[in-house]
Structures are given as C-alpha cells and as structure tokens.
Computed example of a mutant assay.
Amino acid sequence: MLPNKVKVGKEDGSLTLEYPDGACFTMSGEYLRVHSPSAEVKGHGPGQEVLQHGKQGVRVTGAAASGNYALTLTFSDGHNSGIFSWDYLRDLAQNHEQYWQHYLDKLTQSGRFRDANTQPVKLMDPRSPKN
C-alpha cells in the first residue's frame, strides 16, 4: 500500500508516512539509516551485512520518489544510496519495536555503540599477571 503523505521532519529529521487506511508511522533518521537497504548496510548477499554503529543523531535530510515503487532517502551523514521500497518502509514501520531491539542487541554483542563518540573502556586489574 502506498502512503498518501510523506513528510520529512525538519526539526527532528524523522520520516512520517500516512496511509489511506488511517495508519501513520514516524521513524527516526537513525532507525532508517541503520536499516538502509543499500549494499553498504545489507552487503551483496547473505552473511555480508555490515552492522552500522555511531549513527545516533543521524537525520533524514531529504526524500525523493524513485519511480512509483520506492523512496530514496538522503541522510545527514551523507548516505544516499538506499532505495527504500514502499513495502520495505511499511515493514520497517510495522515491526519497529522488534527490529530496533534486534539492532540494539547486535550492537551490545559486538561491543559497538549508537553514539559515535563512545569508546569502549577495558578495565584491568593492576594485580593481574596478564597486564
């Protein structure tokens, strides 16, 4: 189903999609950026996905129709190569909670962070002979 209204939030860099069935979804730039369907994120095949990190605060800065089937988004970090099909956008919106938690879990497992300025600190026991 195609949305009848697409809005990029100038204040927060979000994307809002309103549908004829009354559904309305707003997604943050960070969420859309880390779920971009681009090769940079998805890779060129199964198992080649690249976990995006340090994207907190990334905003959607532009949206343009890509034919009748998709939307091309531009992000504040310069990323603009993902073509978001209408079906993919609706899936991202409807499954936001599940996909976001999965992403956060993957970040935690990898020792990466949403904030680009956060660096892991390894605490070491000065009494340990391994130091």
Rank of each mutant, 00 (worst) to 15 (best):
G9T: 03
G9A: 08
E11I: 09
E11V: 11
G13D: 05
S14K: 04
L15T: 00
L15Q: 00
L15M: 04
T16L: 01
L17R: 02
E18V: 08
D21C: 03
D21N: 09
G22P: 04
A23Y: 10
F25V: 05
F25I: 06
F25R: 00
M27F: 01
M27P: 01
E30T: 14
E30K: 07
L32T: 01
R33C: 11
S38E: 09
S38N: 13
E40S: 15
K42N: 06
G43W: 01
G45Y: 07
P46A: 13
G47C: 11
G47E: 07
Q48D: 14
E49W: 02
E49P: 09
E49S: 11
Q52C: 10
Q52P: 03
H53W: 09
H53M: 11
Q56R: 10
G57A: 06
R59S: 08
V60A: 02
V60C: 05
T61Q: 09
A63I: 05
A64S: 08
A64I: 09
A64V: 13
A65G: 10
A65F: 07
A65Y: 08
G67R: 03
G67K: 01
G67P: 05
Y69H: 03
Y69E: 02
A70Y: 06
A70L: 03
A70N: 00
A70H: 04
T72N: 14
T72G: 07
T72M: 10
L73C: 04
L73Y: 02
T74L: 04
T74D: 15
T74I: 09
S76V: 05
D77C: 08
G78N: 15
H79F: 09
H79P: 14
H79I: 11
N80R: 15
N80H: 15
S81W: 14
S81L: 15
S81P: 09
G82Q: 02
I83C: 07
I83D: 12
F84V: 12
F84K: 05
F84T: 11
F84I: 08
W86D: 02
Y88F: 04
Y88T: 06
Y88S: 07
L89I: 08
R90H: 08
D91S: 05
L92S: 03
L92E: 06
Q94W: 13
N95Y: 11
N95S: 14
N95G: 10
H96L: 11
Y99T: 06
Y99K: 15
W100K: 10
Q101V: 01
Q101W: 02
Q101P: 00
H102L: 12
H102R: 14
Y103E: 01
Y103Q: 00
L104G: 04
L104E: 05
D105G: 06
K106A: 14
K106H: 13
K106C: 12
K106S: 02
L107H: 04
T108E: 13
T108H: 04
Q109C: 14
Q109V: 12
F113P: 01
F113E: 03
R114K: 10
R114V: 13
A116R: 14
N117W: 05
